[in-house]
Design a protein around this nucleic acid. Structure first.
Length: 476
RNA sequence: GCCCCCAUCGUCUAGUGGCCCAGGACGGGGCCCUCUCAAGGCCCAAACAGCGGUUCGAGUCCGCUUGGGGGCACCA
């Protein structure tokens, strides 16, 4: 499941939610050669994780089932033959070999590659007999030779296509399963689909689809063709190479990867919903906000370049919007994964300190893993403040140790003024003194605010770590 | 080769003939805040692809050019 599939699910979901409609998950698995075990489950898991919940589907059931097309093969077979009876389709016994040769010949002669129509006017009863006797056949749509068809895409308006430009496309394959063209039209009718929102790669087959629908005499759904995603440079579509490039840069277009990279559904959703849709202002939106503001008519037909920096922005923004307990629950697994013992009460105190520093959830590690470590290992060089000698730094550490030791407690209100007094007394910059303390207590040069952190760690541990730092400095 | 689609700041977009010397967001730059890193506040640079029409008036309508994208399977 990639960005494109996620967006293709999001828009109809929003449409259904804001119009009181029903969102159905249908599995289009009619190509047996391309069957991938586990793909359906991954798709379902991805949708659930993102919060794009469907009302009907293979795992939840519903009145329009079954929802896997491979479980509906008799239905398609019936409709295909019904079209034959209506003389809008015909059985075709041509072999793939012959078809390939015809195609080659056409390419050689610079003609368009079309079915040459051999089986178009076979005797119906004869065809039935051959089909019944087990001869391999497909059923093709009998495209009119004359005339034209008017189709409409909701975002692009009406368009007229000459029938002569269209082919006798295969509707039912020789394995008895339908092609997308037949299966989707039949199911859309049976499942009472009002809006077909799909990728723009389907735009060229819209005339065929309309022909099929009209041949049956069905009511047409509204067709909405979404723009494609272009690679970050905006030049060309996402390719395999480009996908690998994204992963190298710490990003991915796959939903399961994004989850592993520490992106949250709220951030991803906000990002993809705006690739092909725009709101005048206040573009930070929850799923509910999107439902309230969504209008299928306002989708844009032009292609959109993928912008990962914007994903980071929306992810960080939505992390900041999370409730403390919610964020705590989401980052806890990262600490656990590092083999750290996590005290929930302490975690709850840490969250407010780091929430505006996180771009992705896994950023919690560099900022806060040290809270849960028994000891920290600071880089000796970090214990020496900028523009100070090691002897001066040692002196600072010693004085700080004594002052803190004498403090009744180390809440920021108590500890910070005392340390600032030390800064003043020594005629140093606060960054110099605080830097030494930070390195000693946290073991790193970047951390959440020092005094809030020290309070969480506790006086005893702060003194212990300061003592170790002093010893390390003495050894230098 | 044939058919089709798209076109506003670097990027995502608002804009549905006068409210636009074009608005928002990301990214970029500057300043402020500041114990590090962030977050936050203020400010700046940055676009209607080109050319012709239509109209009193065009980013908005039409045509062409250019650029980009898609499709031409017993795949979806």
């Amino acid at each position: 499941m990639h960005l494109g599939s996620a967006r293709s699910a999001l828009y109809p979901f929003l449409l259904a939610r804001c119009t009181g409609g029903t969102f159905i998950l249908r599995i289009e698995d009619t190509d047996q050669k391309r069957f991938v075990p586990g793909a359906e489950q991954e798709l379902i898991d991805g949708l659930h994780w993102l919060g794009i919940n469907y009302d009907e589907g293979p795992d939840v059931g519903g009145p329009h089932g079954p929802y896997r097309q491979t479980e509906r093969r008799e239905i398609y077979n019936d409709y295909a033959w019904q079209l034959v009876k209506l003389e809008h389709a015909f059985p075709c016994f041509c072999t793939p070999d012959r078809l390939a040769k015809v195609r080659q010949e056409q390419i050689k002669n610079k003609q368009n590659t079309r079915y040459d129509g051999i089986c178009r006017n076979l005797d119906m009863d004869e065809s039935r007999r051959r089909a019944a006797s087990g001869e391999r056949y497909v059923i093709r749509f009998k495209m009119p030779k004359e005339g034209s068809i008017k189709t409409t895409d909701l975002l692009r308006g009406p368009s007229t296509t000459e029938n002569s430009a269209l082919d006798d496309s295969v509707l039912l394959k020789s394995d008895g399963l339908p092609t997308y063209h037949l299966a989707a039209m039949v199911d859309d009718h049976l499942m009472k689909i009002s809006h077909v929102i799909r990728g723009s790669e389907w735009l060229p087959s819209l005339p065929l689809h309309d022909h099929i629908i009209r041949a049956f005499g069905w009511e047409e759904p509204l067709f909405v063709h979404l723009s494609v995603f272009l690679k970050p440079s905006g030049k060309g579509k996402m390719s395999k190479r480009e996908t690998a490039e994204a992963i190298k840069g710490g990003y991915s277009i796959f939903v399961s990867d994004m989850k592993d990279l520490g992106y949250i559904p709220e951030g991803i959703l906000n990002w993809i919903v705006l690739m092909g849709w725009g709101v005048p202002e206040d573009d930070v939106m929850t799923l509910d906000d999107m439902v309230a503001r969504f209008d299928v008519n306002n989708l844009t037909p032009s292609p959109a370049a993928i912008n990962f920096a914007k994903l980071d922005h929306f992810n960080a923004t939505h992390i900041r919007l999370l409730r403390t307990d919610d964020l705590a629950a989401r980052i806890k697994p990262y600490f656990l994964h590092e083999g750290l013992d996590v005290d929930d009460a302490i975690l709850l105190k840490i969250v407010p300190l780091i929430r505006e520093r996180l771009v992705t959830l896994d950023d919690c590690l560099p900022f806060a893993a040290w809270f849960f470590k028994k000891t920290v290992q600071s880089n000796p060089a970090d214990l020496i403040a900028k523009d100070l000698t090691f002897a001066q730094s040692l002196d600072v550490a010693r004085q700080a140790f004594e002052i803190i030791k004498a403090l009744p407690n180390i809440t920021p209100a108590v500890a910070e003024p005392s340390m600032r007094a030390l800064v003043e007394h020594l005629g140093l910059k606060s960054s110099q003194v605080f830097g030494i303390l930070r390195a000693a207590v946290t073991g790193q040069t970047v951390s959440p605010p020092l005094f809030d952190s020290m309070e969480i760690v506790g006086k005893e541990k702060v003194l212990e770590r300061l003592k170790i730092a002093i010893e390390n400095l003495e050894k230098m």
